[in-house]
Design a protein around this nucleic acid. Structure first.
Lengths: 200, 200, 200, 200
DNA sequence: TATGAATGAGTCTTCATTCAT
DNA sequence: AATGAATGAAGACTCATTCAT
């Protein structure tokens, strides 16, 4: 290991290979969906050997989980404790508008291929350490409740579950309708009204 | 070829075999899930030969397509116009608890395979003639608003979209977590609180 | 299924295929040992498809276990209750001379490939219903003790374990030394003297 | 090249690395068995790079062969000439209980992988100079017979062969049953009773 | 001496489907 | 109408080994 911050030629090439695999999987997901995302396909598309895949990723799910890791998140610490119900709603909606932007960046076809209940990379109970947006929201709600800025008529865990389901539903709807819905507006509206029913 | 409506002995036996296969597949779906639904398993469970399956069904998907037809719905005409907000909430939740029961009957793995944005059978803008639960709910809301039994702070279309997304999110979550969540409770809670934010 | 005892053409061909696979595995074991006994190799050697293998055998171990099933055994019912210690010894030794003959029929190389602790087909605790020679001996000892023809200074189970180990040691030695030892004589001597220390 | 016996710093580090690899392999063998003994695992456990392994060992088998050198033995000279049959039995059993301990140290899967008739390191006729336990026993019997402390109804060579087979049978049984038998007790009992049939 | 990226053949097993009988 | 033997591609993943740095 070098002491310098620069990467050696080898490390650079390694990173490139990883990226090649990553992008290849993305392309397959977009073109032909999750069901055609086999290791063999990925490697062929990436122009990389089978063994190389497993050098860079532990399993197929491991690869997939990077799409989420990649996802830009908002550090919960950066979110101020809200001064009232309205501010809290806006912050939470903001987190998911951020998410909407990320989905759009990946593309409808990618999301259509990615959002399958079979894709265990989506299961937060399996890799909770990942910085999912929902984690940001959960921390935020905890802080806000602790500071008595807001009150809930459900447990935080329940609210978080409901929001997660609502968000998946939104992404699903967007992908299902091939991007021809107002993703932001749907997201904003549905979350906002759900929170109206939950925030006191 | 017989002109009569009666079936010959042979035709009768053929129908029986088909039904045996159909029921066997259903049983497997319920007991051990979609992943274990192989032709071999189906035939073993049905006590029928491999080749017999292909005599009655073109492919596995052919068999599966029969299940969708089966979906139980609630005739919107049968739902009384609600007398108040609370009754309306209960009726809508009831429609989806009915749906939860149907999902469970199909089995978690079936649903996991079914809920993909690529599955355009889920897209209500494409096959509106189908009696999806959401259609029931839409008609119901229309009638209730018309009768001034309830008031909404959103358009009916928006509410219906939100509910559809929420329901898909619920089914997705249930399937993603391999059935290890309280499907009914999640559904009831999330819809109910969403409606709290929407019904005046 | 036919009512007659004769096999249909298809059934006959099926049996032939099974036999082809069986013999192919035997040849591989002899030529290149257990470590080269892959499904692919077996199928190539047998001139049979991969899937065909799994039509006839549940798993690789399942195939292997048939080698033991094949093994000629002596029906314990055919062994008379011994009149004395000496007769008992001779009967037991006889059972294993029978086994020696079977090993020789399979060939040193086969046995060398087959006798690995990794080969769970050798584990009697896994498929006890099989007519291993040791089962014959166990039944025989039980009958002889019950009839008070012999007495043991160990439990039958212990004796049976010791004999099984001794027999495996004999086969191992024979294979390890590439057949260049007196298998029969070793077997006869070692079992016989062990029994001297155990039969009263 | 240095003429002195001292090792340069580099040579020292090289030796350390080799030892690290050796110990890591041993640990893996003990913890998770032969099946999990891959180069990758060894290197991870040793905290050493993949390439480093191949710098120190030609192949995996090369590494494994070093274990044999390690085997602890009892110097035959240290065993007193027995005063009677009973003492002799105990001494011989003791040698093999020592061997049982060594097998357990290596781990059941190591032994399972090691005890193959193809492994010619097990063939005493090939590498007689090795201080196998059986050599200790042979010397011991020779001395005891010469001193007329014991008498045998077989030639020493025959007894030694029988014991060797019995011991291999014991190790095999232990490994085949994945360590779930009483190795010591089996060894003690079977050898002891065999000797009862052989020692006058 | 040491690193770790890359290789690609190899593992067992499952699968939907075809077809001669 | 029904059987079940046969196919072979596909699945995810492991492995020992090589080689440029």
């Amino acid at each position: 290991m070098k002491a310098t911050a620069e990467l050696s030629k080898q490390q650079l090439k390694s990173k490139e290979t990883k990226e090649k695999i990553f992008q290849a999987a993305k392309r397959i997901l977009q073109k032909s969906g999750y069901e055609n995302l086999s290791i063999k396909n990925i490697c062929e598309e990436a122009g990389v050997s089978n063994g190389s895949f497993y050098h860079h990723f532990k399993t197929k799910d491991d690869l997939l989980s990077y799409y989420i890791e990649d996802q830009p998140t908002i550090d919960p610490e950066l979110l101020d404790v809200p001064k009232d119900k309205q501010t809290a709603k806006e912050a939470i909606v903001g987190v998911y508008l951020n998410y909407v932007a990320y989905c759009k960046e990946l593309g409808v076809d990618f999301v259509a291929g990615y959002y399958t209940p079979r894709n265990q990379a989506l299961n937060p109970s399996i890799r909770t350490e990942r910085p999912y947006p929902i984690v940001t929201v959960q921390r935020y709600l905890e802080k806000a409740v602790a500071a008595k800025a807001i009150e809930l008529n459900l447990s935080i865990e329940e609210v978080v579950t409901d929001i997660r389901m609502l968000v998946i539903g939104n992404a699903f709807e967007w992908a299902l309708r091939n991007g021809e819905v107002n993703f932001e507006e749907n997201m904003r509206r549905s979350i906002s009204h759900y929170l109206d029913g939950v925030l006191l």
